[in-house]
Structure formats: C-alpha cells, structure tokens
Amino acid sequence: MISSTVYSQKFFNQLGMLKLSAVKSFPVDCLVKSISDDELKDRLYEMGIFPGQSIRLLKKAPFGDPFMISVDDSYLMLRLNEADLISVEMVEKS
C-alpha cells in the first residue's frame, strides 16, 4: 500500500505517478491512477474520484489554490492538499 511518505515527494507519489497537484497545464483531461491513503479518501471516492475515472482539471484559483475540476457532469473545487492525494495520468487531447 502507499504509505504516508508520498508527502515527502512533491510531484510524484511513491510509485512514480504524477500528482494532480503537480499538473501545470490546464484545461487538461486526466485519468485517475490512484488515491493516497488519507481520511479524505472515502470522500474523494464518493465524489466520483477513484482509479479508472477520468477527470478534467479546468482551472486554478489566482493564487494557485484551490483547483477547479470536473468529474462526470459536476464541477468541484478542491484544495492543493486534496489534489496532492490524487495521482493521475495526463490524457492527450483528441
């Protein structure tokens, strides 16, 4: 399992996957690869953010935090701390 040492690395989690918090370009489509263990993990799952789901990073707030993303048909805002828990793979725009 992924341990809490993910926090020691800024851009990638332990398995070398890109964190959503490190994604610089937007808007961009992403495929969720994993969610780090955290007390917010359940909450993210309930909002439809879990491995295999595609999400879209739409915007960052003017000071770089929070993030605006879309999941299915809904728009969500989450803080950098939450985006840190989400590992993604960027999808080339078709």
Partner: peptide
C-alpha cells in the same frame, strides 16, 4: 477532530 479540507461542488 477532523482536519480542514475543501471538496466543494460548484453548481452551474
């Protein structure tokens, strides 16, 4: 008890 977080829906 719980840490601060923000996961909020932005309605249309």
């Amino acid at each position: 008890e719980s840490k601060s977080f923000l996961i909020m829906e932005m309605p249309q």
